[in-house]
Amino acid sequence: MQKMLSNKWVILAFVAPAVLLYAMVVPYPLLKSIQYSFYRWNIIGTAQFVGFQNYVRIFTSDYVFTTALKNTALFTIGSIVLQIPLAFILAVSLTKVTRLNKFFKSVYFLPCTISGAAVSLLWQFIYHPNMGIINAVLKSLGLGGWARTWLAEPDFALWAVVISISWQWFGYHMVIFLTSLSTISPEIFEAAEVDGATGWKKVWYITYPLMKPFIKISMILITTSSIKAFDNVYVLTGEGPANSSTVLALHMYNRAFLQLQYGYGAALAVILLILCVVLSGVLNKVFGTKNAEY
């Protein structure tokens, strides 16, 4: 067996296609981007080497960068807090098969079949000051005084996006957790019951540790996609009002493509990349790489 599973030619044949394709498309443009981050370049003209100046400007005179960095952090934490516990609880409560549960599972998954841009269009109407459903509900509850122009409130605009994106994706993480629950063998639960574990106690001591690797997957997915978040913010608030809801990826896009400072945008992208690598590393440490075994 040992011999069969370490056959070099088989390994090569299995790994090479993926690695080659990937190497063709990902590392080279990435290195190019890192190179551009040392240039002043408007995409179309000739690039001019400026050393670390783009980085210096980001940290010294870019008043939007600080907001973007802070917002990206809040965005990530907010998305995790809103989605993971909800998805976990739903997955655990929905493991029992009844007709209704099947319905719930399908319904909760629906929003992530729609593009981020379309979801954001939809939420524009939900948050709308005059015709939006949130203000309408508040008014019908006699809480008209709480009604707001949600997307134009500097303190709320970012959370508006976090809520809409969580609405879109909680069902996806629920499905990841449901998939992982299927890998837990029922004997473990039976044994636990014999030991006197019931209800949420069982969930906390048995289900949660066994699902940890999948929670890690979800955490990493949410973290990396939050750090790269773009579509939803772009469509829903367009970084406004007055940059208050901007995030790093959007700031990068605005600078690189809309304000034609590609080199500067590339420098922002490099910072974004470093952030992603560091955070994924941290998550990996926190959750461990080894699966729980029973």
């Binding site: 122009t149 949600w150 134009a152 009002p241």
Partner: peptide, 11 residues
């Protein structure tokens, strides 16, 4: 309007 920053041009 007080919520002028939240209104789209077509509205």
């Amino acid at each position: 309007e007080p919520n002028v920053n939240g209104i789209k041009p077509d509205e």
